[in-house]
């Protein structure tokens, strides 16, 4: 999931009777499964919550280029390099659709970027972990994109039209990303002993951070109910995490890798795996800025933005000159 712990702008879910007629009409449209479009009336809290959620998702896509970009120049074959370039290009493209979706809610890309750069908005905690060996690129595709898909597939049905349409496009590409990641892991896990060790090491390091991507446990997740009533969140964090574990464990077994969890066991009664919770204190530390790469990741984005100011200014100045010449002619 690329948006974690998005604060919902609400004091709790109102019943239909407590709502104003306008709010009630809005909620009834959502309940009927209608899409809300940009020019239509919406509660201010709905708009603000969506801006936060879509913005955080967009930021995650662009910061997410960095851990993978770390291996583009070292990809082991020309084909792997081309695939990784295509994937990172897709991610920048996802960022672009999502910033555009946020713009339809009245917030510009530059405003959202300012908030990212000043630390007022977050991106997914997962991108604050380093990519230390080539199998990490496999683990990101398999686990990180796998977790993102888990969340994004239901969001194709989200109530806000532009967000829903962005998700439909993004999901098509994400499933390709996940397959290429798993393919790297399979090659590594079935390769030389050194490659297998890299694959296991990558799984060991990315397993719990991937589980954290779904956000805190439902019992500690305070703002979910309103977002679920508005259909901007479709499943709870724990539902999605369970689904992810159930899907991933057999995939790990199939390629001979071990999930780093002694307590992992099939639970016949619930029809799913029992598994250990991630260390939530680590999660809150990473969110607070103390992950292994927080400074580097945000620093890289801020540097790119600041170093690029002359470029953006130059293009604007040229456009103005051209406009001036056209007007004069």
């Amino acid at each position: 999931m690329y948006a974690q712990m998005v604060r919902t702008d609400s004091d709790g879910v109102k019943s239909l009777d407590e709502m104003s007629p306008q709010e009630r009409a809005f909620q009834e449209r959502i309940d009927r499964g209608e899409k809300i479009e940009p020019k239509e009336w919406m509660p201010e809290a709905y708009r603000k919550t969506l801006v936060r959620q879509i913005g955080q998702h967009a930021h995650s896509e662009i910061v997410g280029q960095l851990p993978e970009g770390n291996w583009i120049t070292r990809a082991p074959t020309l084909e792997r390099k081309a695939i990784l370039l295509a994937k990172v290009q897709d991610e920048a493209g996802h960022g672009l659709y999502l910033y555009c979706a946020a713009e339809t809610l009245g917030v510009s890309r530059d405003e959202l970027l300012d908030k990212l750069h000043s630390g007022k908005m977050k991106y997914s905690s997962i991108f604050n972990y380093p990519t230390l060996n080539w199998a990490d690129i496999g683990a990101i595709g398999w686990l990180v994109d796998g977790a993102a898909i888990m969340n994004q597939v239901p969001l194709q049905r989200t109530s806000y039209g532009p967000y829903s349409r962005a998700m439909i496009r993004i999901c098509k590409e994400e499933s390709f990303h996940q397959r290429q990641g798993y393919d790297i892991m399979m090659k590594m896990a079935r390769g030389t002993p050194a490659q297998k060790a890299m694959a296991q090491d990558a799984l060991n390091r990315f397993w719990y951070p991937s589980l954290m991507m779904f956000g805190p446990s439902d019992k500690d997740s305070v703002h979910s109910a309103q977002s679920m009533a508005w259909k901007i969140k479709i499943n709870t964090n724990d539902e999605l995490r369970q689904k992810f574990v159930d899907q991933t464990v057999p995939q790990a077994e199939f390629i001979g890798l071990t999930i780093p969890d002694d307590k992992l066991a099939w639970n016949e009664e619930k029809g799913g795996y029992d598994f250990s919770e991630p260390d939530w204190s680590e999660f809150y530390e990473v969110i607070a800025g103390n992950g292994p790469c927080n400074r580097e990741r945000l620093g890289a984005r801020v540097k790119a933005w600041e170093d690029g100011a002359w470029f953006r200014d130059g293009l604007l100045a040229h456009a103005r000159k051209k406009e001036g010449r056209r007007a004069a002619a």
Binding site: I62, Q65, I72, A86, A92, G95, L96, W305
Partner: peptide, 17 residues
């Protein structure tokens, strides 16, 4: 490809990749 994720604007990240 060394620019990946470090370009001055998102459209350039896409074009360079």
């Amino acid at each position: 490809s060394e620019w990946c994720g470090h370009a001055p604007v998102l459209e350039e990240d896409i074009a360079l990749a």
